[in-house]
Amino acid sequence: MIKQKKKKTVGALRNLYIMLLILFLYVPIAMVVLFSFNTSEMNIVFEGFTLKWYGSFYENRTLMESLENTLIIAVASTFISVVIGTIGAVGLGKYDFFGKKMVDALLYVPIVIPEIVLGVALLSLFTLMDLYMGLGTMILGHVTFCIPFVVISVRARLAGFDKSLEEASMDLGGNHLATFCNVTLPLIMPGVVSGAMLSMSLSLDDIVISFFCSGPGSTTLPLKILDMVKHGVSPEVNALSSIITFIIIICISLDAGAQLKKVKLGTI
């Protein structure tokens, strides 16, 4: 009896700990949403409820420009890194060539090195090449740190890949391109999609690489907010962030919901 009671308390304490840690991670997110409805322009106390920031953030031109830049960079760098990363992952898995070990090793560098080192390295290189610092250089930088994540998530799919399917396609007269598009690609698609989602979220939120690769007039949203934090962030930013947060939460919940269904079906 006492043992059972003790077990219950331990269970409750465990749940409490889980709740507290999740709370720690979510407090600032909740605050953003709360303050996006605040009538006061200062983000200190909650004075009253309003929806005006949701109606006015798109009139803030500098904010919208930085959002536009962020989206352009994210879409472009996701597209480029998915194309290069997917083809590259398949190629690296299939062929052996001189310098392959080096490429494999280089792929880990952007993942493990502190971002600032890659940032200053790219800044120096772009200066040496005399490139115009702007959206172009930022996309180059973002693609560089996105490719490894695409390669890794595609590789995870390739691990369970049946090579005989490709051989069958080639034997039946399909050329390399047709085999890749009709056989290989559909099979590794889940890896490609998760690589793309990862690249997109990394690119949307990147600060360090963007900071070192940006030039005049090419601010992204995170850089803009970073700049604003020192002088005070307007509630419009809170409203915009809340919207972005909701979109993300819905996407992840849909994905988790689909997986939950699988789990449930599996247990029945």
Binding site: L226, V233, A256
Partner: peptide, 22 residues
């Protein structure tokens, strides 16, 4: 699955905004 999704979500919310709220 639900609890780990909660962790994944925090990854995706703008770092700088969370920092500012802290």
């Amino acid at each position: 699955k639900i609890l780990m999704s909660c962790i994944m979500i925090t990854f995706c919310v703008s770092m700088i905004i969370r920092l500012f709220m802290w």
